[in-house]
């Protein structure tokens, strides 16, 4: 029977993450190039970096807890949804 590993799910997520990273750097670029020089602008950039860092760290820390090599068969997914068991 056909089965697929869990890490296939990381491919679409990786695309979303890359897009978010691109937007993040576009925002930094715009601030760096067009904003008025001031302490507030420097603080804003710092907040951007810290918040993106924290979000990435939170997501990364979760991703590390999952065994992405585990394989699943499509047939076992939908029926088992109702009788979900706890991941120990």
């Amino acid at each position: 029977m056909f089965s697929f590993p869990l890490f296939y799910l990381l491919i679409p997520f990786g695309l979303v993450f890359l897009l978010a990273l691109l937007f993040f750097f576009f925002n930094i670029f715009h601030i760096k190039r067009y904003a008025i020089q001031s302490k507030a602008t420097s603080l804003l950039m710092l907040i951007y970096f810290v918040s993106f860092g924290v979000l990435t760290a939170l997501i990364g820390s979760y991703l590390l807890t999952v065994d992405w090599t585990e394989e699943f068969e499509p047939s076992e997914l939908l029926p088992s949804f109702e009788s979900s068991s706890r991941l120990e």
Binding site: L9, L77, S84, L87
Partner: peptide, 24 residues
């Protein structure tokens, strides 16, 4: 939602993507 060995990670990735989009 996060207990199932397959749908748990799926839900978490959807949530993470959602947060990244809102953040952007």
């Amino acid at each position: 939602l996060f207990a199932h060995p397959f749908w748990g990670p799926v839900g978490a990735l959807v949530l993470a993507s959602y947060l990244l989009i809102i953040f952007s």
